[in-house]
Design a protein around this nucleic acid. Sequence first.
DNA 1: CATGAATGAGGATTCATTCAT
DNA 2: AATGAATGAATCCTCATTCAT
Lengths: 197, 197, 197, 197
Amino acid sequence: MAPLNEEQLIQIRDERREQILAAALRVFSRRGVVGTKMSMIVKEAGISHGLVYHYFKSKEELFVTLVKGAIDGAQEALSFFTSLPGTAYDKIRRFVEEMIDEKGAPYFRLIYQARTSDGVPEEAKRLLDQYTLDDYIEVLKPLFEEGQRDGTIAPGDPGELIAGFLTVLTGVTVVGSVDERQFRIPNIEMLMKMISK
Amino acid sequence: MAPLNEEQLIQIRDERREQILAAALRVFSRRGVVGTKMSMIVKEAGISHGLVYHYFKSKEELFVTLVKGAIDGAQEALSFFTSLPGTAYDKIRRFVEEMIDEKGAPYFRLIYQARTSDGVPEEAKRLLDQYTLDDYIEVLKPLFEEGQRDGTIAPGDPGELIAGFLTVLTGVTVVGSVDERQFRIPNIEMLMKMISK
Amino acid sequence: MAPLNEEQLIQIRDERREQILAAALRVFSRRGVVGTKMSMIVKEAGISHGLVYHYFKSKEELFVTLVKGAIDGAQEALSFFTSLPGTAYDKIRRFVEEMIDEKGAPYFRLIYQARTSDGVPEEAKRLLDQYTLDDYIEVLKPLFEEGQRDGTIAPGDPGELIAGFLTVLTGVTVVGSVDERQFRIPNIEMLMKMISK
Amino acid sequence: MAPLNEEQLIQIRDERREQILAAALRVFSRRGVVGTKMSMIVKEAGISHGLVYHYFKSKEELFVTLVKGAIDGAQEALSFFTSLPGTAYDKIRRFVEEMIDEKGAPYFRLIYQARTSDGVPEEAKRLLDQYTLDDYIEVLKPLFEEGQRDGTIAPGDPGELIAGFLTVLTGVTVVGSVDERQFRIPNIEMLMKMISK
DNA sequence: CATGAATGAGGATTCATTCAT
DNA sequence: AATGAATGAATCCTCATTCAT
């Protein structure tokens, strides 16, 4: 019956917070903002209704928090893969791999949801508007240009190439979340062919 | 003095029905089932609330009707393009063109929505389960095999190729519906490269 | 194409009116005011929605018209049966017979509905309040007293006797309208025993 | 600080449930299914709109629950009165007493409503069809036959007698719910005369 | 006189959020 | 910190009534 000390409380708080965010990401990324009910998140997280509101002011804030994280994650992922050793082609390949795998996909799906859904709070929209496609293009351009120079990436305007490629990858990530019988994410080689020489 | 004759009534009914369906397709395909409020459809169609229910029993029935139409449309499109004159590659190319253009896209988006959304009525799900990816593969396989024989289509299991390709096309269609600044549908050549020799 | 003359128009009007009233009586008497939809009356009468409103201002007016008729009919029936030749007992018996048969029952059911239902217009209520149980008692009292004198009717306060008896008859009429398997209207002898010596 | 313990929660839930059911019984039994607005039940129970749906899925389920209870109650009442000590006549008399008093009447009115109204869910209808008049007759028959043997109950087919009698009792219960000035439930002696020798 | 398409106010239901414990 | 009962605004849907023809 001894009260928890402050450190323990903070730890509990952080764990709970993460637990809720993780549950919310899973649900939001599949169902979008309006399609997600608080009861789904609550069930997925295995906690009570009221508790979510101890950690987040509203469904809106919960969503915005996730979007922020997704944007940061995407930025980080980009930086990470561009900084890897190896050829440009290999770096891009590994980035693609990450983007469509189980762990990375939810974030890209979330960003898509944020751009599409209607119940999306203004703040989330503002955040996303700061990071448009062009920003991603800017970061990837050196990589693609390097690939064009060494003859592994198809010629042409690299901006166009990247924009189309990212759109395809996001699209595949989004529709790939539904059942196998309906959609099947192509293997990486097939995807890479789109931008290969 | 006399009421409208039967022919006129049928015409009015057909027009209204189409008007409502067209409005509903525009809204559903972008926002999904739960994200779509009847008031949106009503506004888009420029009619009163009650009138929708004169023609469709419920939001659900409206959605199911559209899904049926989308499935039929997709089937027809497939048959149409396979029956066209020209090389296998050309036929596929024209099919892709159709799929990602302004007119075709809403239907594919709708099918995606139907598979994803949660408020989707059982009937729509059953309809969709009848037309799985495999059916489309079956229809397209001869075309792809022909292309592989004449050296225009990439080698490998044609089933895999088609499944991945359709998933990409659907994905692009789905995410391509949002604003230009965020996603940009790649040009056809880029998409075709995925399946080209 | 010759226009109908005035007489024919009047006849059509009267026939239509009666047709609508008859249909409305059948529906109202079974389902009450709120339970009756205009579409039911329209279907039962085999006419169009709009036509009802040529003859009656509203569902309300239609119901009030029927209630008026039912009250008048009940009054008339009472007068008619009291004026018949024969013993008091026989007159009462024939009145009961009439009340529970196919033709008479709807009117009594309607009066019950009018007193019970909630959507009943004020005017109908006022009409009914003018003809309370006491009025019926007043009319029947001489008959019952005569029966008590000649030893065919049970002794006791005739007012009480009549009130209870009419309540039973109305009740039987009301519940008797539902399916045979659930309720079975007793034969007249059984009912008469309630008030017999 | 600590949330309510399970026992307290169960108690609150049971109380609320009963409170809602009691309020709903009062309203439904008078007004039928379509005539009852959720707002009436809500007001009668003194709770908010949403809370009803915390305990019952729909107006329909609420009604079905009550019908189930009414059927069970009627069955129990029958068993109870047949098992009482005393003469057959006395048992029947007490059953009648119970049936038409303030407490019992709403249930019989509810059963009538369930058989009559139109918005009645299929499940309620099925429940009622399982308990037809014949079942009640079966249970009461021994009692009536005993009464016929000891000379207190009128001769004749006991099935007919019971069917007619129950119909009268239900009818009286139903119409007796409206205001005194219009209908007056007869005293028990008068009702018993119908089946007395 | 007659039709049925069209309207919109009102009622059923859902779900984000609050609050007593 | 944690619970889940309770609230009410927003949404879907029904149906009496109107109106162009």
